[in-house]
Amino acid sequence: MKNKKSKNSKPAEKNTPQPQQKTFVFGKKNYVFMLIGLAVIALGFILMSGGASNDPNVFNEAVFSTRRIHIAPMVVILGFAIEVYAILLNPDS
């Protein structure tokens, strides 16, 4: 007997998996802003450092300097704001 194919039958398609392209979650622009934000945060923590005394019985007034109390925390908060901006930034625009 002859093998008759029906009109609706299609030739068997090969189920070869296509290699998926690996993509990053963010674009290059996002990563640049993230690195800038990390550098600003690190700068803020560097500005906060210091003011210690070698003798625990001697109090050093340098702990309360304007740089450590006001400027450094604002720099750190600015760094976190840059990080949030980097996450929300649309790299296509």
Rank of each mutant, 00 (worst) to 15 (best):
K5C: 02
S65R: 09
F59N: 03
K7I: 13
Q18I: 13
F59G: 06
S93T: 13
R68F: 02
A12Q: 14
K14A: 10
S9K: 02
K5T: 10
V75H: 03
S49T: 15
P19R: 12
S6Y: 02
I69T: 15
L88M: 07
I87L: 13
G37E: 00
A72W: 01
V25Q: 11
L43E: 05
G44D: 02
T66W: 00
K10H: 01
G44Q: 01
Q20K: 12
V75D: 06
F59L: 10
G37N: 02
V63D: 09
V40S: 11
N54I: 07
G37V: 00
P19F: 13
V76K: 01
V75T: 15
N54A: 12
K22H: 12
I41N: 11
A81E: 03
N30I: 13
P56G: 07
L47N: 08
S65Y: 06
E61G: 13
F26W: 05
Q21W: 05
K22M: 04
I46G: 05
A52D: 09
E83K: 02
I46K: 10
K5V: 08
K5W: 02
P91L: 11
S65G: 12
I41L: 10
K5M: 09
N90T: 10
N54L: 08
I71C: 06
S49F: 15
E83H: 05
N30T: 14
